[in-house]
C-alpha cells in the first residue's frame, strides 16, 4: 500500500526484503559457573524455517529463549525484527518496547503452558484484548477462526484439563498466532506429546511453514526437522558444530560430532 504512494528505490526495497528477521552474533549465556552457550552466531531470513537440533542439555532451548529475552544473554548481540534487543548482556529495550516485541514474536513451549483457569477460547482471546486492544467480539471472532484452523473449533469452551496434550499444544499455537506474529519460536513443540498425537501438531506446523511463516524450531526430532526446515543448526556443548541445508547437515555431515549424533539416533530408531 505504502509503495504506491511513496516510491521506494528498488535496491532499498530489495534490501528491506532481504534483511534477516533474526541476527544472532557471538551469543553466550552463563548460568552461575556453567557456560551453556559459548558464542553462537546465525541468522534467519524472512519466510525461512530454521531448526536447531542437538543432544539434550546442549543449550538449544536457551538459544530460542534468548531471542525474546526470556533469558538475558550474557554477551553477544541479538537482533530480531529489525531491532537490536541485547548486546553484551545489556537489554536495549524499555519494558514497554520489550512487551511490544514479544507480541510480534510468538512462542510455543514444550510444556504448552496453556492457562488452566481459562477455556481454550479465552486462552486465545486474552492477549488479543489486553496486548493488542482488540474488542471482545473481534478477539472472539479471530480466536474461533484460529481454533477452527487448528482443528479445535468444537473444543473452544473446554478447559485445558479436558484436552489432550496435542490439543493443548494446538491451543497454544492458536494463542501465539492470534497476535499476528511476524516470527514464531517453537521450543520442542512435540516432545511432551504422545507419538500418535504429534501428527496433529506437526500438521499445523507444516501448514504454517507452507504459508510462509518465519520460524525457529528447537527439536530433537531430526527427521521431522529435516523435512520441514530450510536450514538447520547442529548444536553441541554450546557451540554451532555444523549448519546448512538439511541435505548438508543430515545428508552429508562434515563433522565427526554431527555424524556421531545422527548415528546414535539411527541406532535408537528415531
Amino acid at each position: 500500500m505504502v509503495d504506491s504512494i511513496v516510491s521506494v528505490p528498488p535496491e532499498l526495497k530489495e534490501k528491506q526484503l532481504r534483511e534477516p528477521t533474526i541476527v544472532v552474533e557471538g551469543l553466550t549465556k552463563r548460568f552461575g559457573d556453567t557456560e551453556v552457550l559459548k558464542g553462537i552466531s546465525f541468522d534467519v531470513k524472512p519466510g525461512e524455517v530454521l531448526s536447531i537440533i542437538g543432544p539434550s542439555g546442549t543449550g538449544k532451548s536457551t538459544v530460542i529463549r534468548c531471542l525474546n529475552l526470556l533469558e538475558t544473554p550474557t554477551s553477544g548481540t541479538v537482533s530480531i525484527l529489525g531491532q537490536q534487543v541485547s548486546t553484551d548482556g545489556r537489554t536495549l529495550l524499555s519494558q514497554r518496547q520489550l512487551e511490544k516485541l514479544r507480541s510480534r514474536a510468538g512462542m510455543v513451549f514444550q510444556t504448552f503452558n496453556v492457562f488452566p483457569h481459562l477455556t481454550a477460547l479465552e486462552n486465545v482471546t486474552l492477549a488479543q484484548q489486553h496486548v493488542l486492544g482488540r474488542s471482545k467480539s473481534e478477539a472472539r471472532t479471530r480466536a474461533m477462526s484460529l481454533l477452527e484452523r487448528v482443528g479445535l473449533g468444537e473444543r473452544a469452551n473446554f478447559k485445558p484439563n479436558q484436552l489432550s496434550g496435542g490439543q493443548k499444544q494446538r491451543v497454544a499455537i492458536a494463542r501465539a498466532l492470534a497476535l499476528d506474529p511476524e516470527v514464531l519460536l517453537l521450543d520442542e513443540p512435540t516432545s511432551a506429546i504422545d507419538p500418535e498425537l504429534r501428527v496433529e501438531v506437526r500438521a499445523v506446523i507444516d501448514e504454517l511453514a507452507a504459508s510462509g511463516m518465519t520460524m525457529v524450531l528447537v527439536t530433537h526430532e531430526v527427521r521431522y526437522a529435516a523435512r520441514l526446515s530450510d536450514r538447520m543448526l547442529f548444536l553441541s556443548d554450546g557451540v554451532v558444530v555444523e549448519s546448512g541445508t538439511p541435505d548438508q547437515v543430515v545428508g552429508e555431515p562434515q563433522q565427526e560430532r554431527t555424524r556421531r549424533f545422527l548415528h546414535a539416533l539411527e541406532d535408537d530408531g528415531v
Partner: peptide, 27 residues
Amino acid sequence: VPSGYKEASAALGLSGWDRTRLVTAPL
C-alpha cells in the same frame, strides 16, 4: 504458580500488571 505460566504470559507481551492480574493471581 508454575513458572511456565508466568513465562507464557510474558511471551505474549502482557504487561507486568496484566500478567499478575489475569494469570498469576487467579492461579
